[in-house]
Design a protein around this nucleic acid. Structure first.
Length: 458
DNA sequence: ATCGGCTCGCGCAA
DNA sequence: TGCGCGAAGCCGAT
């Protein structure tokens, strides 16, 4: 009983319909949480299937609709499909995956799959990032399986970490527990459908962005990263997290973004190590939960996440006041994209994005601040950052990423000394990077990665 | 090396 | 109504 009430806050009815009595199964449309374990949406769908005495069918798909759809993201997603399929089928549910090859192509059998559903469950995600969900002609639910503390528990927009932190802390005891494991009572009948043969060349996507040199998709790789973090990195986390060449962070953001692993699963795993590394765990959980969920809160209460409109008033005013300030260096999107600035550290961070598909969190702040400094206007700087993330980052198009990018413009931050271009928005300098991080080691690492396509330290 | 000031406004105590 | 303090810093004074 407890479990159900606990799950309630995660569940949003998408309409007032009843389950269809002639339905053959409950359908879970897996979109943001591509995993078979630790998934509240899957758990709710399973529970619903049991209550209706029906089997469960999981439908996952990948289309070419995103204008930035490319080999990198497609590969990362497809890496995980066989694993997900086998794990879902082991639960006794059906699993279908559809890969669209053309833009505008409706998932094969989608109408047919929908027509057989007594009810539909899908992942809940902030609409400013997710877009509008289709109208379902059948009972439908959206479940928040992304946040540790469900987004709906925080009923106001929060202006900074300090305002969401106590709210989350208070609810953590209730929500920091594993997603329920639900045993399906009815097996999905019928032979397992063959997974699609993957021929990326045939997909109508951008083939000029190659797969990441470093990150492979799927549950197994997510778990390997988590294990490596717990074994080798967590104990150094607070001292080294802002020194990229020390590799003390989890590198889990691509896996969290595609839902191969959940923040809750990571938090619980870190919690089990917390006795030995209490302070480290606290610092990590602050970022994994408080700051990540502050970003979800921002997306949830924003109309647009890719604009400066939602910045605090002081930030918009101060950036506007300095709009016409002279730029000592100014670059075009193309120059940024191909890492052609005068600053070797900045160029290396951009190359990290081009090659690994992800920039270390600390250097990403520097990367963003410099794009503001070297762009003709704040609006163009924002557009450049979003373009580069959309195109190259495996953790792009995520509430967390929009939060990180807009932080560079003052979101969730406070004013500081007024200076050119930035006004009172916090500034970061190359001197600071040289002082606080081992820039030389990082440059070597990226140079090696660029030359060989391999990581210097495996 | 360390420290205070910078500057605004939310959120809570009173 | 007042007050403390804050998403990751910088700079200049000591």
């Amino acid at each position: 009983m407890r479990i159900l009430s606990e799950v309630d806050q995660r569940i949003r009815k998408l309409n007032e319909m009843d389950a269809r009595t002639d339905g053959e199964y409950v359908l879970y449309w897996m979109r943001w949480n591509r995993r078979a374990t630790g998934n509240h949406a899957l758990a709710f769908a399973s529970d619903l299937a049991n209550r209706l005495e029906l089997p469960l069918l999981v439908f996952e798909n990948l289309d070419c609709e995103d204008r930035y759809a490319n080999d990198r993201r497609h590969t990362f997603i497809l890496d995980g499909v066989a694993e997900t399929a086998s794990a879902i089928r082991k639960l006794g549910a059906g699993y279908q995956f559809h890969l669209a090859h053309r833009k505008g192509e409706e998932p094969r059998d989608w109408r047919h799959v929908l027509a057989g559903a007594a009810a539909v469950v899908t992942d809940d995600f902030p609409e400013s990032v997710d877009g509008k969900l289709p109208k379902f002609e059948v009972q439908a639910f959206a479940v928040d399986a992304s946040c540790v503390v469900p987004m709906s528990c925080i009923e106001t927009r929060c202006y900074a970490a300090y305002s969401i932190r106590p709210k989350i802390q208070k609810l953590l005891a209730e929500y920091l527990r594993p997603a329920p494991v639900v045993k399906l009572r009815k097996r999905f009948a019928g032979a397992a459908e063959k997974l699609p043969d993957v021929a990326l060349v045939q997909c109508e996507i951008d083939h000029t962005v190659p797969p990441s040199t470093t990150f492979h998709g799927g549950r197994k790789h997510a778990e390997l990263h988590l294990e490596r973090f717990l074994e080798n990195r967590l104990r150094r986390y607070t001292s080294d997290k802002n020194n990229p060449s020390a590799h003390a962070t989890s590198d889990l953001s691509p896996y969290l973004h595609f839902g191969f692993i959940s923040a809750l699963e990571v938090a619980l795993a870190v919690g089990r190590h917390a006795k030995e590394h209490k302070l480290m765990a606290d610092a990590f959980l602050e970022e994994l939960i408080v700051r990540r969920e502050l970003a979800f809160n921002f997306s949830r209460y924003s109309k647009k996440v890719d604009s400066l409109d939602e910045l605090p008033e002081w930030a918009r005013a101060t950036l506007d006041k300095h709009r016409k300030d002279a730029r000592e260096h100014e670059y075009t999107v193309k120059q940024f994209e191909s890492a052609e600035t005068y600053d070797d550290l900045w160029n290396a961070t951009q190359k990290e994005l081009l090659l690994r598909g992800k920039i270390h969190g600390y250097y990403r702040m520097y990367w963003g601040k410099k794009i503001i400094e070297w762009s003709p206007t704040p609006e163009e700087a924002l557009a450049t950052m979003i373009h580069l993330h959309d195109r190259y980052a495996l953790d792009g198009q995520d509430p967390n990423t929009y939060g990180n990018i807009l932080w560079c413009f003052g979101l969730h931050d406070r004013p500081w000394n007024e200076r050119p271009i930035f006004g009172m928005v916090r500034w970061m300098s190359r001197g600071g990077m040289d002082r606080k991080t081992k820039v030389g080691d990082y440059l070597k690492e990226i140079e090696y990665l660029e030359r060989t396509g391999k990581e210097l330290i495996a």
